[in-house]
Design a protein around this nucleic acid. Sequence first.
RNA 1: UCCCCUGUAGCUCAGCUGGUAGAGCAAAUGACUGUUAAUCAUUGGGUCGCAAGUUCGAGUCUUGCCGGGGGAGCCA
Length: 469
Amino acid sequence: MRVMDESRVRHILQQNAGTPCTIRGWVRTCRQAKNVSFIELNDGSCLSNLQVVCDANTSIADAEKAALQTGASVEARGMLTESPGGKQSVELLATSLRVIGGAPADSYPLQKKRHSFEFLREIAHLRPRTNTFGAVSRVRNVLAAQIHSFFQKHDFLWIHTPVITSLDGEGAGNLFQVTTLDPAAVPKRDDGTVDYRKDFFEKPSFLTVTGQLNVEAFASSHERVYTFGPTFRAENSNTSRHLAEFWMVEPELAFCDIDGNMDLAEDFLKTTLSGLLRDSEEDMAFFDLRIRPGLLDMLKGVIEKPFMRITYTEAIAELEKSGKSFEFPIQWGSDLQSEHERFLTEELYQSPVVVTGYPAEIKAFYMKQNEAGGTGRRTVRAMDVLVPGLGEIIGGSEREDRYDVLAARMDELGLDREMYGWYLDLRKFGSVPHSGFGLGFERMLMYVTGMQNIRDVIPFPRTVGNLRY
RNA sequence: UCCCCUGUAGCUCAGCUGGUAGAGCAAAUGACUGUUAAUCAUUGGGUCGCAAGUUCGAGUCUUGCCGGGGGAGCCA
């Protein structure tokens, strides 16, 4: 089979009438009359189908005519012609048509009608053949490409941080343990605890919850680096926004403070979003039309408006003086709830907002501490990027680069200095101010597509109590 | 983990205060010289999630279990 030719629907639809074509794909719908049949073929290359027209001159076996049903794979050869129909400019007038694999209509689950996303989740192996999930798959690909392209253009190195880790105390949720021990016969030490010396790594091991700590080592050598890979959280959270396995993007930048970090995050979002709108025009128009009306305007707003930048303390003051009654009361020291985030981005500023200077108590140990100042309130140089329609899309910080301050904070939180010895070393040898952020790739996909459930923007979702395919 | 909703035909759903199951779409067959959510006609299709209970009688009421969805918390 020729792989590098351009006999794919998205290319064929660009060609002029009179071009001979061969197309392979799957039947979306089939309308048959006595002397003419219309078959809509989709090959996943774009949202549009190619209409294949079969008439009396088309060579097709009688047995295969009956197999021309929704879901069947076919190959059609013929001539591209101008279409008299209104919904497409060109169509393929077939000289021959061959059914490669049939799809018995009485058992093929996908029908030529709308299906609920809940139903499609139960046939995750077939949903790539639907309009919506086909578009999600293409947008997922294009967005990933935009992200790589953005970083590559700015001289960032893509670092492949490990999936298996020994660090279990980062505080980013529950971990999946990785082991080769037989669960039915776990080796024990004399005191009854598990003898991990017999395990594969001779110590407890886990799936990573973040590549950040590892990638900081490379920021300390290559200055500009990022991770983009799978991440695992064993949280028992059953919501439309959580997965046990998801993909995360984490840039890390040396010689960069919190302000540079905010500049990077803003440029990152604006550049990747506008690249996506440029390169996925047809699919994005589909989401705007069918999934979330107003989506394109919302995204354009993010691209065009400068991001508002305020401190956590200012945000609390604004929320207090708003006079609005929130379900969760505002109080300095507690985290912003999504209702608060929505108020800031959607009502008060009506633009993306970057909030910095969060209380140290509600943020991770590695974030750089600010000077206490007159109020005695301890804050860290964290930043959350909030966008209208979603809330937090990016979370990041300037990292604590002072050895003594970091070590003291770790002691305070009861973290094992020994285990984090290498991480502390980075502050011992050639330490530099550095910053970075994390972005949940599927969360961003939900945002750009308007899809409401995170399980519908990843090919095969893994969630609590649910592992199929 | 907590709260709420829900499970009836392949899909989406209706089925009032308990009386023995229905629609639209899909499918099958036929008609139709160009359709595009094709149209028209005909036909088939259901242990009403599972188990127990109340009752003369349960899709409908009760309890338990299982599945799905939404929200909260946790977070990305």
